[in-house]
C-alpha cells in the first residue's frame, strides 16, 4: 500500500499526462483514499484550465455578440440571435458530440488557405483533442449564454446615463467605453457570476464520452467516474468531487464578488447589487 505522501507525489500531477507521475492509474484493490483525493484534486487543474480560458475568451466574444444582437441592423442582429438561439437551445452534451464528430472529419494534415502571395495552413488535428476542441465548444457555449445576459443588461442601461454622455459630447467608442460598457457589466454581473459557476460545473461534461482523454489525463469528474467503475463504491469518489466543486464555486463567488464591488463602487451602499448564488447546472 502506498502512503499518503507517495500517492501525492505519484498522482497529483498525473492528470497532465503520464510523464508527470506514475504511468498507470491505481487499479482495483490497490486504490487508497489518498489516491482518490489527490488524483481527483489534480484533475481540477483541467477544470480550472477549461473554465478559466472559456470565461476569458467568452467574455470578450459575448460583449461583441451582445452588441451585435442589440444593433438595429438586421445583418448584425439576425446572425447574433441565431448563434445565441443555437447554443442556448441545445444541450451542451450534444454540442460536444456534434463538434467532435465534425472535427474528426477535417483533414489531418490541415487546411490550406491560399492568400495569393502565400498559403496559410490551418492546423486542424489539434481540434480533435479535448484541450483545444473541447475548449472551443465551451467558449462558443459560454459566449452564447453570456451574450444573452449582456444583451439583457444593454437594454436596461439607464437612459439618464446615456443622455448625460450625449450632453458631455461623448460619442462612439468613448461613450461605449465610459458609460455603456461599465453599466452593462454592472447590471449583468450577478447573473454573469452564476454563468461562470455553471460553466465551471459543465467542464465535467468535456470528457464524458465525446472527446477522448489521451493517456488517461482527464478532469476531476473523469477520475471520479474511473474510481467508481474500479471500486463499485459511489460513496467515496463522488462526495470528494462534489466537495472540490463546492470549494471551486466558493472561490468563483469570492473573485467575482471583488469585481462586483469595483463595478458598483460609485453607487450608494443600499443600491448596490448583491450576488446571489442560483445554481442551475445542466446546459
Amino acid at each position: 500500500m502506498r502512503t499518503c505522501a507517495e500517492s501525492f507525489q505519484g498522482y497529483v500531477l498525473r492528470p497532465l499526462g503520464r510523464d508527470y507521475g506514475e504511468r498507470l492509474l491505481p487499479r482495483g484493490l490497490d486504490i487508497t483514499f489518498c489516491d482518490q483525493l489527490f488524483l481527483i484534486g489534480g484533475g481540477l487543474l483541467w477544470n480550472i484550465y477549461f473554465a478559466g480560458l472559456a470565461i476569458l475568451f467568452g467574455f470578450f466574444l459575448a460583449t461583441g455578440v451582445a452588441l451585435m444582437k442589440f444593433s438595429a441592423n438586421p445583418w448584425l442582429w439576425r446572425p447574433a440571435s441565431a448563434f445565441v438561439f443555437f447554443f442556448r437551445g441545445s444541450p451542451l452534451f450534444i454540442q460536444f458530440f456534434f463538434f467532435y464528430s465534425a472535427f474528426i472529419l477535417l483533414p489531418r494534415t490541415g487546411i490550406d488557405i491560399p492568400l495569393g502571395f502565400t498559403t496559410l495552413t490551418v492546423q486542424t488535428s489539434a481540434l480533435t483533442t479535448a484541450q483545444v476542441g473541447g475548449l472551443f465548444v465551451l467558449i462558443l457555449n459560454t459566449t452564447a449564454y453570456s451574450a444573452e445576459l449582456f444583451y439583457g443588461a444593454l437594454r436596461s442601461v439607464p437612459k439618464g446615463d446615456l443622455e448625460a454622455a450625449d450632453a458631455y459630447g461623448m460619442g462612439g467608442l468613448t461613450k461605449f467605453r465610459r458609460v455603456v460598457w461599465p453599466n452593462m457589466l454592472r447590471l449583468a454581473w450577478p447573473s454573469y457570476t452564476n454563468e461562470a459557476i455553471f460553466l465551471t460545473h459543465s467542464t465535467t461534461l468535456v470528457f464524458l464520452s465525446a472527446f477522448p482523454a489521451r493517456q488517461q489525463s482527464g478532469e476531476a469528474f473523469y477520475y471520479a467516474r474511473y474510481f467508481v467503475d474500479q471500486t463499485f463504491n459511489p460513496f467515496v469518489a463522488y462526495p470528494i468531487v462534489a466537495a472540490y466543486f463546492i470549494m471551486l464555486t466558493l472561490i468563483i463567488i469570492g473573485l467575482f464578488g471583488l469585481v462586483n464591488r469595483r463595478l458598483n463602487r460609485h453607487l450608494p451602499q443600499e443600491k448596490r447589487q448583491r450576488i446571489r448564488f442560483r445554481p442551475q447546472y445542466i446546459r
Binding site: 460545473h201 465535467t204 461534461l205 464524458l208 469528474f221 471520479a224 467516474r225 467508481v228 459511489p234 463522488y238 468531487v241 462534489a242 466543486f245 463546492i246 464555486t249 445554481p279 447546472y281 445542466i282
Partner: peptide, 10 residues
C-alpha cells in the same frame, strides 16, 4: 449546491 451530473450518476 452539488453539480447535478454527479447526482445523475450517484
Amino acid at each position: 449546491g452539488v453539480p447535478d451530473i454527479v447526482f445523475f450518476l450517484f
